[in-house]
Simulated scan of single mutants.
Amino acid sequence: MPNALKTLATLLLITSVLLVTCKSAYANDPLNEFEQAMVQHKGKVVYVDFWASWCIPCRKSFPWMNTMQAKHQDQGLVVLSINLDAEKKLSKEFLKQTPANFAIIYDARGKLAQKFKLKGMPSSYLFDRQGKLISAHTGFNGKKQQLYEQEISEALAQ
C-alpha cells in the first residue's frame, strides 16, 4: 500500500504543477482574458476600447470612459479596454498621466486587434446585454462622443 500512496501523491503533485502551469499560460492570453471578461459581464452592456500610449485621441477618450463607467455602471455598463503597446511600460506611463477606472487587457502581440480587424486608433465596440456586437467605431472626438453616449443609453434602456 505505501507504494500506491507514493504513486498517488506523485501523480497529484504532477497534476497540480501542470494545472498551475497551464492556468498561468492561459491567463496571459489576451484572447482568453477577453472571452472570460465577456462571460463574466454577460447581462451587461460592454463598451470595448482599443488604445495605445501613442494615440492622441485616447488621452481624451479615457476621462470620458471613466465618466461613462461611473455614471452608468449601476445600470449595467462595463468599460473594458485593450492596450496594444508592445512594451507594457509605455502603457503604464500613459496611465500615470491619464488614469483608467476600468479593466485593461494587455495585447502586446495584437491578437485581439487581429480578431476585431482593427482599422485605426482608438477603436470601440459596443456589445448588448446578450453579448451581441451592436456598434463599432474608429476615432474619438466631441461629435463622436455624443453618438457613443446615445448608443450606450439606448443599449442600457433595452
Rank of each mutant, 00 (worst) to 15 (best):
L31R: 13
I104G: 09
D74T: 11
A100N: 12
S61K: 15
S91G: 15
E149D: 05
S81W: 06
E154R: 08
K119H: 11
V39D: 14
S123M: 05
Q114W: 12
N141L: 07
F102R: 07
K96P: 12
G131C: 00
Q40I: 13
L126D: 02
L13C: 06
K144D: 00
L147R: 07
E154F: 07
K117T: 13
S53G: 10
V48Q: 13
V79A: 06
K44M: 13
D85Q: 08
I14Q: 05
T138L: 02
W51N: 10
L147C: 02
V48C: 12
K143M: 04
D74W: 03
A157D: 10
R59W: 09
L95P: 09
D74M: 03
T10F: 06
D29E: 03
W54H: 12
V20M: 08
Q69R: 02
Y26G: 13
V20D: 06
K119P: 07
V39Y: 11
M68T: 00
V48L: 15
G120N: 03
L77Y: 02
L156H: 07
N141R: 05
E93Q: 15
K71C: 04
V48T: 15
V78G: 03
W51E: 10
T10H: 03
A9N: 00
H41C: 11
S53N: 14
L126M: 02
H41S: 14
M121C: 01
Q73Y: 05
A108C: 10
K42T: 13
M1R: 05
I14S: 01
S24H: 15
L90F: 13
Q145P: 01
F140S: 00
H72S: 05
A103Q: 13
K115A: 12
A70K: 07
P99T: 02
Q146W: 00
Y148F: 09
Q130K: 05
F62Q: 04
Q40E: 15
L90K: 15
D85T: 05
Y148K: 06
F62R: 09
I82E: 06
A136I: 09
H137C: 04
P30D: 04
D107W: 06
